[in-house]
Design a protein around this nucleic acid. Structure first.
Lengths: 138, 138
DNA sequence: TTCATACTTGACTAAATTAGTCGGGAATTC
DNA sequence: GAATTCCCGACTAATTTAGTCAAGTATGAA
C-alpha cells in the first residue's frame, strides 16, 4: 500500500504553485526545476488538473499556470482523485457478485478495509492546499 | 494508493483461522476454499506468518495451522508488516540526501504524507484480529 | 515578422511490481 | 505405505508505473 509518484508529484507541484505563484502564471519548467520533477511527466498531470478545473493556463511567453480555485478551497483528496490516484482499499465495489458478498466470513474483513479507506479519505479531505503551504499539518 | 492482494488475503485467511479454527489445526485447503483464495499463494503467505510467529503449523493428516498468539493480541498492522505490505506514504526514509530535504518547499509536503501514514498506522494498530471476527469495527 | 517561450496532446516504452503457478520435497497420521 | 498437509524455491505472465519523445499550437517581445 504505497503512494505513487503521480499523486505525490501532483500535490508537490500544486503546493509549489500556491506557494510561489502569487496570482501570476508560473511556468511548469520553473516548478519542475525547483521540485526536481520530470517536466514532461508534470505536463501530463497538469493536463488533467486543468481539465478538472484546478488550474488555469496561459500560453506563450511569460505564460504558465495559475490556481483556478483558492488554495483554501482545494482539498488534497480532490487532487488525488483528479489525477487518478485512487484510495482503493476494497475490491468489491464494482459488482456485488464477484465481490465479498458470497460468504459471511468474507464480509468480516470488508468493514475493516472500508474503515481504513474512510480514515484516509477523511484525513485528506480535511487538509487544503493552503494548510500544506502554511504548515498547518498536525 | 491501493491495497494489494497480499495484505488482503493474509488478513482474510487469518480472520478465517481465528473464526473457524477454535484451537484445532485448520488446513490451508479449507481456508482457501472457504475464502476463494488460491492455495499456493496462501502457502507463501503462511510461510512468512509462521516464521514471524503469528501461526503455528501441524504437519500430516489432520494437520494445519493454528494461531500462535491470541486473536486479541494480533493487530492488523502487524500482519501487513509481516508479509511485506508496507504502508508507504513517503519516499525519503532511506537516505536523507536523495529525499525531500533539498529545498524547504519539498518538505512542505513531507508532513502531509507522514501524517497520512501515521493515520493509517494508528487505525490498523487499533484493530485486532478478534475485533474483526466479532465485528467490532467502527 | 520572427523567434523564443510555454502550454497541448497522443503515442510509446523500459522497468518494476503483482499475483500468482509449478514442481518437488518432508513430516505425520491412519 | 498411502493420503494428507505443510515446506520451499524457482519461475512467469500480466499489469502498472513512471516516465520519454515528438510534433503541434498559442502568445508576447524584439
Amino acid at each position: 500500500m504505497k503512494l505513487g509518484t503521480r499523486g505525490r508529484y501532483a500535490v508537490m507541484a500544486l503546493v509549489d504553485l500556491a506557494y510561489y505563484g502569487q496570482g501570476k502564471p508560473l511556468a511548469l519548467t520553473e516548478i519542475a526545476q525547483r521540485q526536481s520533477l520530470p517536466l514532461s511527466y508534470l505536463e501530463q498531470l497538469f493536463l488533467k488538473l486543468r481539465q478538472k478545473g484546478f488550474v488555469a493556463s496561459t500560453r506563450g511567453h511569460l505564460g504558465g499556470y495559475t490556481l483556478a480555485r483558492e488554495a483554501e478551497a482545494i482539498r488534497i483528496s480532490e487532487i488525488l482523485e483528479a489525477i487518478g490516484e485512487p484510495l482503493e482499499t476494497t475490491r468489491c465495489d464494482k459488482s456485488s457478485a464477484t465481490g465479498c458478498l458470497r460468504t459471511n466470513a468474507k464480509c468480516l474483513t470488508h468493514a475493516l478495509w472500508a474503515g481504513l479507506g474512510a480514515q484516509m479519505q477523511q484525513y485528506l479531505d480535511g487538509i487544503s492546499l493552503a494548510d500544506v503551504c502554511e504548515r498547518r499539518i498536525i
